[in-house]
Amino acid sequence: MRIVVTSPGMLTTIQDLGRAGHGIQGVSRAGAADALALRVGNRLLGNPEGAAALEMTLLGGTFAFPDGARIVLTGARPAAMPVYQRMEMAPGEECRLGAFVAGARCYLCVAGGIDAPLTAGSASTHLPSGLGPAPLRKGDTLRFHGGGAGSGRVPEELTRYETRIRVTRGAQWAQCNEEVFYASEYEVTTDANRMGLRLAGPAAASGQNGQMVTEGVPLGAIQIPSNGQPILLFVDQQTTGGYPKIANVISADLPNVAQLRPRDRVRFQLVSPEEARRALLGQEELIRQI
């Protein structure tokens, strides 16, 4: 069964849950920026959670289904299409997403998952290395498996996104003026992509650079370069860095980061490692209810 790309939208890539295990080569994991939305969409279709799907950014594409399809959209909300609902596309029918009215990344999941070649065990596009398929272009034809039944509903909590982002302390948290950082709003700049999001707001660390020995950087790290403006490292992140890391987004809130748009204003809330773990386990419990 086929998907024909009538228009790719702003940036549309194939994503699954990524390829971990290549950090030693300097290659980060990639995978869906909003892994929660991908997993939920796949579960609604009866697919394996990590089946490959399309990740669209800010402006969705237009896709034709010459052989029909059962699809689900998750994550960001396109103006004219419902999310978190199974939809039957008749043979020849076209799905036109347009600009998103809320959120930054929308996933188009198809029953059976997209059949894309695997590189190092994953179909994900990793933009900084060129691993995986190139971003979609007009006229591309993708294949998918079809089949599968799918059932179930999504708990409402999994469809809501927040601009309050919970973090734990980062490795160099002692360099952070926490009274400033946790009391301030930070604006997402236009320099926000799968590698990282540059934020603008009150300087919360002295940003003494070159003092630190380069070390590995975790997904969701908030680092402070010399200009004092935070950079949040995301799924196509660099694997090491030399800037102080004052905080780290908790796993359960990484989907919230994926849905931030330029000019959104965020606040960070410090939680304990135990709270971070409880939040993740709670989220997993809800996913299992689908």
Binding site: A20, G21, H22, G23, I24, R29, V213, T214, E215, G216, V217, P218, L219, T239, T240
Partner: peptide, 12 residues
């Protein structure tokens, strides 16, 4: 995953 650097390894 592992992210080794000069003096440490980040274990993911």
């Amino acid at each position: 995953n592992l992210h080794p650097a000069y003096e440490s390894t980040l274990i993911v």
